[in-house]
Simulated scan of single mutants.
Amino acid sequence: MTYLSRIRINPLRQQSRELLSNPQTMHSHVCAAIPATPDTERLLWRLDTDNPQRPHLIALTRSKPDWTHLVEAAGWPAADDGGHCDIADYTPLLAQLAIGREFTFRLTANPVQNMPRPLRNGDTAGAEDPKTRQRRSSVRTGHRTYAHQLNWLLKRTAGYGFQIPDARTDPGLSILPLDESTPAPDVRIIHRDRVSFNKKNRRQVVLHVATFQGRLQVTDTDLLARALLNGVGPAKAYGCGLLTLAPSRRPNG
């Protein structure tokens, strides 16, 4: 079974500020919510900060989680209204997937590309196995512009089992190289950020992150279910890759 959780974070608490600024620290707290070891199941999470005063952690786990530690450390454990965290069975949503059905979606991702790595002194091209040479001769770099990040997603939708329909109204995507006869896709980037932090080995990690929001249409239920459960793109341990759906407000057809 799979569970989708939504936890309220209090941004004014000291530990909350560390969690909100360091994806590695947040990842460790997400891992602590499940009884299984992190290497036995895929964990996906992201931060939704539409309201900076009420950020939420969204997490997808295969095991049923216990978020008590996170609520006590970074939430509102003494609040009277409850609602500190919501945990829902993910199975009903997966059962709704059908070819042609539309959903609204949100995805925080780390759009990247592989760039040639300059040869250093002493390197000899062509002296290694081709696959090894390819790994050593390229480096993964993040897309930094709105247009490149958006195109990164649009080029990959088929592989994730969906397509993005034309926008019903102009979403203001004139930044894309579309001619006047080509309708704009119904997706936009609602947040972009450069995230930098140090790992335990003191190596600095820099991520260029984009949050996409829009409308999708299912083209392959198996591929989409796999994307929902396993994530989209790299940096999944650091709050990227979680694709979430909600029923489209407008009926199909």
Rank of each mutant, 00 (worst) to 15 (best):
D179E: 10
T25S: 05
W45D: 01
R194E: 14
L223V: 06
A109W: 14
R140M: 15
S5D: 10
I99S: 09
R192C: 03
N151D: 12
P23Y: 06
Y238E: 01
P177V: 10
I164D: 04
R250Y: 15
R62V: 04
L245Q: 12
H148V: 01
G82A: 08
R106C: 08
Q204S: 04
L223N: 07
E18I: 08
G241P: 06
L93C: 10
H84K: 04
G241A: 07
D170F: 06
M26P: 11
V195Y: 07
K131T: 15
D193V: 09
T61Y: 10
D170I: 02
A109G: 11
T91Q: 14
D186I: 03
W67Y: 13
S5E: 01
L4T: 05
D66A: 05
D123M: 07
T221C: 11
D166K: 08
R62S: 03
V218R: 08
H148C: 04
L178Q: 15
R8P: 00
R215D: 00
Y238A: 08
N230Q: 13
L178H: 15
G142W: 09
L178I: 12
R106E: 12
Q134K: 10
D89E: 07
R17Y: 06
R42C: 10
C31N: 03
L20I: 07
N201V: 09
A79K: 00
R144D: 12
N114G: 02
P251L: 05
D80T: 01
I7R: 03
N252P: 12
E102I: 00
R133E: 15
I190K: 09
A36I: 09
R62Q: 12
S174D: 15
